[in-house]
């Protein structure tokens, strides 16, 4: 099989607040032989907020990201579910509506850019589960995670809207569970895994956000999970950084360590805690790291 190559779009959160996710992804990609090419010009996808601000503008700035990937001759891989959802819905709309593609290109051309509509958008989770393949991943594991019971947490934007994302069935997703299994860990199924972490309203209705976060963590804990894993840095912000606030809300000690997907893979590939920036998490990872 030819080497996998992607235009790499970590997203804003993974470059700042959750940069351990970006750094670990690069290490994991190197270990697996997946080539990631930086996109130095890429702007923020708008995280859905730009769709609220102005739909056409949101389409145009996302098309600018696609134009860069097209110039590179590569498809885009992100490590953020929200980036994935925003870029995929933009792409869906541009493919579905030739007039929108045309009017968007009229704007892009003023900035010397063009998008033909051919770029595909994927994320690390899908790359592992499909393009790379879980059998191959299993063979790369040097430290099977057989001491871990992991609750998968997809959140919203890796699954819905499925007409734009089109990988997992939101009612019966499999990619995250299968990846956990391939790494040698046990899956702790939970109803909250496909529901919202609350991130989008952290700064708007904090009470709702924190209560939502608490509910998800509490369920994982009650089902016997030692930790959670998520493909999304925004989910990670709420599940990890906001866990202290969530504990106050649900009036219980939660203490659920949360892995970025890349870190769980990195752990099985033998990366160290320092390399993966585990100390950057607010909830201690010590109990689940071996």
């Amino acid at each position: 099989m030819a080497r996998l190559k992607y235009a790499y779009y970590p997203g804003c959160a993974s470059q700042e607040i959750a940069k351990e996710s970006n750094e670990t992804t690069r290490l994991v990609a190197t270990e697996l032989g997946i080539e990631l090419f930086d996109m130095p010009r890429a702007n923020c996808c708008g995280a859905g907020l730009m769709t609220d601000y102005d739909y056409e503008l949101s389409i145009a700035i996302n098309a600018r990201i696609f134009a860069e990937a097209e110039e590179m001759g590569l498809d885009i891989m992100t490590i953020c579910s929200t980036c994935l959802m925003v870029m995929s819905t933009t792409n869906r709309d541009l493919k579905r509506d030739p007039k929108l593609l045309e009017s968007t290109n009229r704007v892009l051309e003023k900035a010397g850019l063009h998008y033909s509509g051919k770029v595909k958008v994927t994320q690390l989770l899908w790359v592992l589960a499909k393009d790379y393949g879980l059998e191959k991943l299993r063979k790369k594991v040097v430290k099977p995670l057989n001491w871990l019971r992991v609750a998968p947490f997809y959140g919203c934007h890796s699954l819905r809207p499925s007409d734009a994302l089109g990988f997992d069935d939101p009612e019966k997703p499999w990619s995250l569970e299968a990846t956990i299994n391939a790494l040698g860990a046990d899956v702790v199924d939970n109803r909250g895994k496909t529901r919202c972490c609350g991130f989008q309203v952290d700064l708007v209705t904090e009470d709702t956000a924190v209560e939502m976060t608490g509910k998800r963590l509490l369920e994982a804990r009650e089902k016997g999970a030692q930790c959670m894993v998520t493909p999304c840095p925004f989910c990670h912000i709420n599940l990890d950084n906001y866990q202290g606030l969530a504990e106050k809300k649900v009036q219980q000690k939660l203490n659920v360590p949360v892995f970025h997907l890349s870190q769980l893979v990195g752990l099985a590939l033998g990366l160290s805690a320092e390399e993966m920036g585990l100390a950057r998490h607010l909830v201690s990872m010590e109990g689940v790291f071996k």
Partner: peptide, 18 residues
């Protein structure tokens, strides 16, 4: 305000300034 600050941030630096 949340949305406006996002729109301004992207226009200014191209990214989300948390």
């Amino acid at each position: 305000k949340h949305v406006e600050s996002m729109a301004q941030s992207i226009k200014r630096v191209g990214r989300l300034d948390e």
